[in-house]
Simulated scan of single mutants.
Amino acid sequence: MVSSSTTLSASTATKKSRSPTPQKKITLTVKSQQDGREDVYKIGYNAHMKKLMDACCTKRNIEKATVRFIYGTKELKPRQTPAQLTMKDGDFIDLVTYQGGG
């Protein structure tokens, strides 16, 4: 299976707080439950998941309102961070597409 990698960086607006080490990044894989496609993203450990969600939807040309991102058994919220979710390098996020219906 072919996968591609995308690096996402956190906002540079936090330059006031000087930390001795650069921001830690982790690699996360988003796997579509519909077609099995996998995309790999590098994201800052304290970056909002919204960055990953937006990048994934743009890359796949899908509307954000039509999909959900699931980590473990919980739906991800845009303002959560990998640190808050205690994610580890190499973790998987499931991309679930709404099937529609009434």
Score class of each variant (00 low, 15 high):
12 T>G: 06
11 S>K: 00
36 G>C: 06
21 T>M: 09
29 T>M: 12
31 K>A: 12
39 D>S: 09
34 Q>W: 03
29 T>H: 13
15 K>D: 14
38 E>F: 02
41 Y>I: 05
18 R>C: 03
38 E>L: 13
16 K>E: 06
27 T>R: 15
28 L>I: 14
36 G>P: 08
31 K>R: 14
43 I>H: 06
11 S>T: 00
30 V>Y: 01
42 K>A: 12
23 Q>F: 10
37 R>H: 11
28 L>Y: 05
22 P>I: 05
25 K>G: 05
42 K>H: 13
29 T>Y: 12
26 I>C: 03
12 T>S: 11
21 T>V: 10
43 I>N: 01
22 P>S: 09
16 K>M: 04
37 R>M: 11
41 Y>E: 04
24 K>E: 15
22 P>R: 02
32 S>P: 07
39 D>I: 07
15 K>F: 13
43 I>M: 08
28 L>V: 14
30 V>P: 04
30 V>H: 02
16 K>Y: 08
41 Y>G: 05
27 T>H: 09
33 Q>C: 11
21 T>K: 11
12 T>R: 13
27 T>G: 13
30 V>W: 02
29 T>P: 06
37 R>T: 11
41 Y>H: 05
12 T>V: 05
13 A>M: 03
23 Q>K: 12
18 R>W: 01
23 Q>E: 15
31 K>P: 04
32 S>L: 08
27 T>E: 15
30 V>A: 03
15 K>P: 02
16 K>A: 09
34 Q>K: 10
38 E>K: 15
26 I>D: 01
21 T>Q: 11
17 S>M: 04
43 I>Q: 01
18 R>N: 06
37 R>P: 01
43 I>R: 09
25 K>M: 13
31 K>D: 07
34 Q>C: 03
26 I>H: 02
42 K>Q: 15
18 R>E: 11
11 S>V: 01
14 T>K: 01
24 K>L: 15
26 I>P: 00
40 V>L: 13
23 Q>S: 14
37 R>A: 12
37 R>W: 05
35 D>C: 10
12 T>K: 11
28 L>F: 07
17 S>G: 00
23 Q>N: 14
13 A>P: 01
24 K>Q: 15
22 P>V: 06
13 A>D: 07
38 E>N: 14
20 P>E: 06
17 S>I: 09
14 T>N: 08
23 Q>G: 14
41 Y>M: 03
33 Q>R: 08
15 K>V: 12
17 S>F: 01
15 K>Q: 12
21 T>D: 10
11 S>Q: 01
17 S>K: 09
11 S>C: 00
26 I>E: 03
24 K>W: 10
40 V>W: 07
15 K>H: 12
25 K>V: 02
27 T>K: 14
38 E>Y: 03
35 D>W: 00
11 S>A: 01
14 T>Q: 03
22 P>Y: 06
43 I>D: 04
13 A>S: 09
24 K>D: 13
32 S>I: 04
23 Q>H: 12
38 E>D: 13
24 K>H: 15
25 K>S: 07
41 Y>V: 03
29 T>E: 11
